[in-house]
Design a binder for these strands. Sequence first.
DNA 1: GATGAATGAGAATTCATTCAT
DNA 2: TATGAATGAATTCTCATTCAT
Lengths: 235, 235, 235, 235
Amino acid sequence: MIIEDQVSWLPMFFKLFRPTFYLCEENSLLMAKMKIKEKKQIKYNAILEVSEKLMQLNGLHALNLDDVAKEAKMAKGTLYLYFKSKEEILGALALKARKMLLAAFKENISSKTSAIDKLKGVIEANYLFYKSNRLYYDLVSFYEISERETETPQMQEVIRQITNLIVSIIEEGQENEEIRKSIDPNVLSISMWGMTVGVMQLLKVKAELISTHQALTEQKIIQNYTELFAIGIKK
Amino acid sequence: MIIEDQVSWLPMFFKLFRPTFYLCEENSLLMAKMKIKEKKQIKYNAILEVSEKLMQLNGLHALNLDDVAKEAKMAKGTLYLYFKSKEEILGALALKARKMLLAAFKENISSKTSAIDKLKGVIEANYLFYKSNRLYYDLVSFYEISERETETPQMQEVIRQITNLIVSIIEEGQENEEIRKSIDPNVLSISMWGMTVGVMQLLKVKAELISTHQALTEQKIIQNYTELFAIGIKK
Amino acid sequence: MIIEDQVSWLPMFFKLFRPTFYLCEENSLLMAKMKIKEKKQIKYNAILEVSEKLMQLNGLHALNLDDVAKEAKMAKGTLYLYFKSKEEILGALALKARKMLLAAFKENISSKTSAIDKLKGVIEANYLFYKSNRLYYDLVSFYEISERETETPQMQEVIRQITNLIVSIIEEGQENEEIRKSIDPNVLSISMWGMTVGVMQLLKVKAELISTHQALTEQKIIQNYTELFAIGIKK
Amino acid sequence: MIIEDQVSWLPMFFKLFRPTFYLCEENSLLMAKMKIKEKKQIKYNAILEVSEKLMQLNGLHALNLDDVAKEAKMAKGTLYLYFKSKEEILGALALKARKMLLAAFKENISSKTSAIDKLKGVIEANYLFYKSNRLYYDLVSFYEISERETETPQMQEVIRQITNLIVSIIEEGQENEEIRKSIDPNVLSISMWGMTVGVMQLLKVKAELISTHQALTEQKIIQNYTELFAIGIKK
DNA sequence: GATGAATGAGAATTCATTCAT
DNA sequence: TATGAATGAATTCTCATTCAT
């Protein structure tokens, strides 16, 4: 590196300065680098935030890079410095959404002791996530219900973590004699994921029907599903 | 139109035929009307058939009215005499798909005696329908998992019939002491629909994952889901 | 067809009118069809003319569909009703250019009797074509000097005709003992084509050099090339 | 720049070295200047090498400054310190290509004694150059067949040298009574250049046609052209 | 009823060049 | 010198819908 080279012709006694020198050099370089990184991160985030905002206004599919650029006060080309394609923007948000969901699961589980309560907690967390982060929920299910070829390894990794989390709860439940041992944890994990996403999706799509039908409320449906699931897996 | 214009220059003596013409007017008018209706129906169906064919070839979303018109040997404008919009074509096919699904449910149930077997039959029919009519299944779930503002009353009606069918099975099961009475049939009906669609969707989206994971097969997942459901509702 | 059907219930005596009727019908239909075809042709030509004009102003490569649409007072989409792509516009003009060149060859040859004079005529026609139809010449050589994958069969056909024309002149010359028989007509035909295009291209590219160099004129170069060629092939 | 800045804070006693430094100043300044020039040259060359490499991979027209910068491990802006524009990079490479071609001519001629053999040698060298340095050949002909306003004096100079070389061979041939004296050497030189480039271009563009046509091979065409040319100019 | 030409707003992506640091 | 983020015009192609005939 440039600096090293220069240092090599510095007279011996000058090297006394090196410690201080390096400290401030290191700091200033580091700070400069950090500033640049931060700036990049800030713009990166700005694009995501604007995209999110626009999607919240107009829906997942109406996202349009012209609008994003305009709203983010950037040139359209600039977007492409941060994301290779529109798809990548969606992907980044979907990744974020999945991570949020995983975090929500972990959070909701942490206070539970029995395996079945934990699984109920996962369903509940899913529901709460859906209720409080509609766009993010949509992003999760968008990639979950459509066959995108564009799922990145990172995105798959989060799903894997979610799956593993559920599988480990199930196994724990089987060891504790809470859950029937005849059920393969992998199979249960995936069908639970399907059922849960399906029920949430239904709440979303049939929101109007549900709100007008006296016997139906979101809570009742969730509760019914949760109980049914719990009974179904119990020993 | 050209023909009308020509008729207008028909010579006087041609009007002699009018009396006879009038005599059979009622019938002929009816017949004419029927013919017209039939003709309309024929074209209407032709458009749907062509659309279906093209969607089967290229997928749900690749449908393109230029191609439909060309394939149906009509002008593009003609399509708009039979359907207000592209959306309406999709809607009509989705309606057909729902009707087919309802029929499949009824068919599969007919041989079953116990309520729980009937409900299992519904799940099975759903799966079989998914396996054998991919496009129609897609059409059902496309409208089921996305919030289309374009669901027509007719489409809702079929869903109502499906719901009613399931509700009545559940009620029958409760009377027979097969199914726990604490469950509200309406609630169960809707959550069953959600779960089932969700699990099917998962099979579709995660097909690759499932096929590469040794512990997973479509059958196992379906079976696991079905059993879990059956146990969950049993008395 | 509609018209046939109606005719079928026309009373006998009305059929007397048919001849006249058909005549005018036929005429009017034909005329309508012709009008439509003509209209299409007019627009098709308009697009080509506008493209040609713009290329003449800004060069072959600056052609831009926005400008074409604006200049032709059409919507951009309309262009795509007449041409599948920008490439096709270029191709159509290049085809026209090749046809014009072939015609120029034939025209210039027609008055010549000896084979060598005919070949000289081809070179001369090439030069005259270049001088009087610069854009078209560019279009010919654009496709001739760049490796387009987009040469259509039609375009290749014209080149084939040009080649055949030259081959047949050479063969004729060999029969007449004008041209050495040791030369393969196919080989000569193609190298003649290469040389000629090359010399023209040079005139074009080095126009400035030529005009400033006292010993050089286009005519001298062409003449020198022509003679050299003639001597080179003579018996 | 960083280095300058640091030097400026060097402690006083470091200046003791300055006398010595001054003694050799003239030299060192020269050396420094040379080093700077060399450094510049190194980067300049690096850019050209990378550009060449990328063009060899993807073709003449696919060159893209983003890629160049990345591959050369420079910032994109840095490219503009060494070249005013992308065009200038191409120009520099085209100049190199022309120089290589001139060198190839000289090399191939050196062993020949008769003027006609030398001219044949030029054609042969052209063909060999085309066969073995495709990119460079493309660069030569790209500037030779398209009217770039960007031909620099340097580039023109090389062409002048090529022309002079050929002119002098022709004159030599005329003195030796090998070549007809009626031909103006300047005219012949330029038409020979045109023909030769044209035939090579044809080999390139019609490569497929040639390879599929039984009567045609590159060698036959070149040979036919060469002979025809030789006969055409012979006394 | 039927036609099909015309529309024109989109939409995604590229890239040579500039310029503040 | 060197950087590299930012620009933004440029460009091709699509397609649901309309409307004059």
